[in-house]
Amino acid sequence: MGRNYDNRRNYGCRIKEFTINGFRHMTIENNLLKIGIALDKGADIYEFLYKPKDIEFMFSWGAHMDRNIVPGVASCKGNFMDYYEGGWQELFPGISCGDTVNGAETGMHGEVALLPWNMDVLEDSEEKIQVELSVSTLRFPFILKKNLTLLINDPVLYVEEEITNTGMQTLQYQWGHHPAIGGNFLDENCEIIVKGSPAIKGVQADLGDVSCLKAGQEGIWPVVTDQYGNHFDLSKVERKESKTYREFSLSDLEEAEFVVKNNSLQLGFGMRWEKELFPNLWVWQMYGGGFNYPFYGKAYTLALEMWNSLPGGLSEAIKQKTAPSIEPSESKKTKFQVFVTLTDDK
């Protein structure tokens, strides 16, 4: 394991490291994909660019990655939203909002999304690059590692992950991924493709009074009746001018895979993962809705989040017995793929 790699290569698979506003960043790319990673801020993936069509898949929410930014007051729920730049966060070991678990106060969306991560280069060639990113949590005894791999001529990001409990007691946890889709990809020509007819359940969220689904409201994907009696096809992406907002979970998935397809661009963005470890899909539809802090009606994004545990935050999941356990010195591994697909039927 080491950091030696050819940072001068500008063709094939390649790696670059650089610093912006005091934050370490890196890009990994091949001839089809360019992926930007904020090493000093959660290893967030804020850029997922399909180079042949110059299409960006990640939602961008301002330039919040700056060491000079200091919030005027610390939020009782944590400062996740003060530093949220959009993109794709890893959320672990919980999604709590200001509660306490095992005597540790927890902020919004866990710990790892606001911590600096380590990076090592495992393989570097024109045909393949592989990097290992790792982080240790502060308030829980966890180590999280993930390997990211790109291959030449392949529009797929391959991800392998491992969590380890370094403590001397059994712990419960939540683990999920929050890829917020946007850029010049997301518009009203998009649709969400999820195989089968998974169960829908509305979830509670504190982003104003525009949520179309009541907390706990149930249905079958994709058409539901909202709390006002309107019929909605939740698979159809709406315009920003619709000012709609929803959050809901999908369970009983036929396959652990989704694709968001833009029928105008004839391009799709998708993920496939191991359903045994991540049986739930949390859907966040922010089509110009969501008023007051932090979005004030300006956000246009769609997130489809694979999760191991529902409902609510970690303390609630423990109470509802949906949070899995990990024994002392135990590790758990998983792997998944993030891919771009051409959808032209011609």
Rank of each mutant, 00 (worst) to 15 (best):
R3I: 02
N7E: 13
R8K: 12
R8N: 08
R14S: 14
G22T: 09
F23W: 05
H25K: 12
T27I: 12
L32N: 01
I35E: 08
A38Q: 14
L39G: 04
G42S: 05
A43Q: 09
D44Y: 03
E56K: 14
F59I: 01
R67L: 09
N68W: 07
N68I: 00
S75W: 11
C76Q: 07
F92I: 04
H109T: 09
G110W: 07
G110E: 15
P116D: 07
N118D: 15
D124A: 06
V131Y: 08
N147I: 15
V156I: 13
E160D: 12
T166C: 10
Q172N: 09
W175Y: 10
H178T: 11
A180S: 14
G182I: 03
G183K: 03
N184R: 08
N184C: 15
L186A: 04
N189E: 10
C190S: 06
V194M: 10
K201A: 09
G202V: 00
A205R: 06
E218D: 06
Q227M: 09
G229S: 13
H231I: 12
V237T: 14
K240Q: 02
N262L: 11
W273T: 00
L281F: 04
V283Q: 00
G288Y: 02
G290K: 07
A299K: 03
A323V: 12
S329Y: 05
K332E: 04
K335I: 00
L342R: 14
